[in-house]
Design a protein around this nucleic acid. Structure first.
Lengths: 249, 249
DNA sequence: CGAGTACTTGAGTCCGTTCAATCCCAGTGG
DNA sequence: CCACTGGGATTGAACGGACTCAAGTACTCG
């Protein structure tokens, strides 16, 4: 892993499991518990591999800042991007629970991650049911996203898929605080879009050009300016999910 | 929901969350706790809709017996099958945690389901951390399966996809006890396969015929006899996952 | 200034599509 | 008893969306 661990003392609060997703505030007891689990912070550069497929990593991470993505590859090099990672997301749940990761994680921008010991993951369930519930909440949300991606790749046309992806990333980026009205630039390459949508690079390019012609987006440098999120969502026949706050009930 | 609730007293043990997946045996305390959560059993016929998209269902289910599948649809009728349901699987986690289901569930064969009250779902986290962990384990496994499906639809060719799906279903069916060496018949239609793989029915048929010619499977009545699971897995370049038993560590 | 990466575009090919017709079988009702 | 219906499987033909191949631009970086 070409990334370095930041061992200097940092605020625990910004590392929390769910505060980052902006949905729930944590109690003092929860915060102090998290501080006992936390084993450090990790900063990495764009392009860094955070977790490699099928390798054993004794850590779980939460994203504090930056963009990343997780993907699988086949032996002959075919690659499929599974989902994107943003502040509030968790990395390594599969590894923690199933004892093995079958996908890799790579940073898209410089990232700041919070590190936890996998070995103490189960104590979270024993000692902090509310946090354990949060973990399950995150897992259920991930499942929901994957469901939608599956529908997208399986049944949407190329232009619908592309529109969906950009609208989706815009939505998530905005929600997580990585994007705002002034800066709606997605830090992705067309190569990555192709590997997310299951299309070739060439056809991805031609499809994105069509969306650009319609003034729904514009591609600059190595990124995508989202001009009309609602328009994109309309093309994709997709409605951004509006998650309700989790409650104990 | 065209299914009827069986209110007669039944054994709790066979309804457990994880015993059904054959991985872990439950303690007496866990069994008695489950009995307090359980609110009934549900039997339904093949073709029955267990849960309808975007409807509110106050229940969570676990599958005791039979095959089912969950899917999403678009307004114009396009359908995408997301995953299949087998004994030991849970239905409604998304609904329980995110407060809304965005997919439907349908029975493929007659099914027997165990019903739980969604309202008491959180107490499971408070009172039985070990069972809560099991729920998360199931969620992580589902995520892993969806990852593989995504790779399949996104990057595999038609014949690879088909081979993967049949091998996958055979693997799951065998693991869950629904299939054995004598009876390796998958209760699916080609229409369903098409909606799982993101292909048209016509091309799905032609692709399956090729696999039949290679003596990897044979299609009969409304089902698929799996002749050579390993051969199918090889065509798909897929390795069946070998999940380790969950441990507290 | 060469090398590498990202994006773009045109041309031709092929995989998977739609359209269409046929067959089989299980219900269902006259 | 048999015509009628409908779902599932099958096959041929023709179209088209997405593919590969190929070439070229623009930019960054050592």
């Amino acid at each position: 892993m070409d990334a370095k661990v930041d061992t200097s003392p940092k605020s625990v609060a910004r590392c929390s499991l769910r505060k980052l997703s902006g949905v729930r505030t944590l109690s003092a007891s929860e915060l102090s518990f998290i501080s006992t689990l936390k084993s450090g912070e990790l900063k990495c550069n764009a392009g860094a591999t955070v977790v490699a497929e099928s390798s054993y990593t004794p850590h779980i991470f939460t994203v504090v800042e930056g963009w990343g993505f997780r993907y699988k590859t086949m032996e002959d090099g075919r690659r499929q991007v599974l989902n994107y990672l943003l502040p509030g997301d968790m990395i390594g749940l599969q590894g923690a629970v199933l004892k093995e990761m079958d996908h890799s994680v790579e940073a898209l921008t410089p990232m700041r991650l919070c590190m936890f010991e996998r070995s103490r993951f189960f104590t979270l369930f024993e000692k902090q049911p509310s946090l354990a519930y949060d973990v399950t909440w995150l897992a259920a949300r991930e499942e929901r996203i994957l469901d939608e991606h599956l529908l997208s790749i399986g049944r949407r046309t190329a232009i619908e898929r592309a529109a969906y992806l950009i609208a989706f990333l815009h939505h998530r980026g905005t929600r997580s605080g990585q994007l705002n009205d002034e800066d709606a630039r997605l830090p992705i390459t067309q190569n990555l879009v192709a590997d997310t949508l299951g299309l070739s690079i060439v056809h991805t390019n031609k499809t994105l050009r069509k969306l650009a012609t319609r003034k729904l987006l514009s591609w600059k440098d190595k990124g995508c300016d989202v001009l009309d999120p609602a328009g994109l969502a309309a093309v994709a026949q997709w409605e951004p999910p509006n998650l309700k706050e989790r409650g104990a009930e």
